Amino acid sequence: MHFKTAWAIFITSVSAFLVFGSPGPEASSAVSCPDIAVVQERLSNAFQGRNVTAKAIEPSPVSGLCQVHVRVNEKSQILYTDPSGRYLILGQILDAQEKKNLTRARLEEFNRLTAQDKEALDDLVAFTLGPATAPHTVYFVTDPQCPYCKRAETTLEAMASEGVLQVRYVLYPLPMHPGARESCIALVCDKKGHDDFKKNYKSDNQCPEGTNKIDATMKFMQAHGINGTPTYIFSDGTFRSGVMDRSALENKLKAQ
Rank of each mutant, 00 (worst) to 15 (best):
P178C: 10
E74S: 08
D95Q: 03
V138A: 08
T5Q: 14
Q206P: 04
N111D: 13
H69N: 11
I233H: 02
Y139F: 13
N205Q: 07
L88I: 12
M244W: 07
L107W: 06
F10A: 15
P23R: 04
R246W: 04
I9G: 10
T133V: 09
E26M: 07
L79E: 04
D215Y: 08
E58Y: 09
G193T: 01
T238S: 08
D122R: 15
A115S: 14
M244R: 12
K254S: 12
P34T: 09
A216E: 12
C189Y: 07
E58A: 15
F197L: 06
T155N: 11
S15Y: 11
G210R: 10
K254V: 01
Q67R: 13
A126Q: 02
T142Q: 02
A216F: 07
S183P: 04
W7Y: 13
D245V: 12
Y80F: 15
K254Q: 07
F3I: 15
T114E: 06
G210W: 09
Y201M: 07
H194Y: 15
A8F: 11
T103R: 04
E153W: 01
L102V: 11
S183H: 11
F47G: 01
P83K: 01
I57H: 02
Y80R: 09
H136S: 05
G130Y: 01
F3M: 12
T12M: 11
S235R: 10
P175I: 01
L124V: 04
I185R: 06
E108Y: 09
E74F: 07
P131Q: 09
S161H: 14
V188Y: 03
S22D: 14
L174Q: 03
T5M: 05
G24M: 08
F140R: 03
Y87R: 12
I93E: 11
I226A: 02
E119P: 02
L165M: 07
P147Y: 05
I9Y: 14
F239I: 02
V243H: 08
A158K: 15
I214K: 12
L156V: 05
T137G: 04
V72W: 01
S29Q: 08
K100C: 08
R181P: 05
D117N: 13
V138L: 12
F10E: 06
N73P: 04
T81K: 11
A6F: 09
S32I: 14
N227G: 10
I78F: 08
F47L: 13
D35W: 06
I78A: 08
I185G: 01
E108F: 10
A248Y: 06
N251A: 11
G179F: 12
D35H: 13
A132M: 12
E157L: 13
L171S: 04
F20H: 08
L187F: 05
M1E: 07
D215A: 15
F3N: 14
Y87A: 09
T53D: 02
V70L: 10
S84R: 07
V141D: 07
C66V: 14
Q40W: 06
K55G: 03
V164M: 01
A248E: 14
D195P: 00
T133K: 13
H136K: 11
V138Y: 04
K4W: 10
P34Q: 09
D82M: 04
I78W: 09
D196C: 03
L124I: 00
Y80P: 09
G193A: 02
S161M: 04
L18N: 12
A180D: 03
D82L: 09
T229M: 00
L129P: 00
N227K: 06
E182H: 03
A37H: 06
A223S: 15
E153R: 05
A186N: 08
A56T: 12
Y232T: 01
G179N: 10
K4E: 14
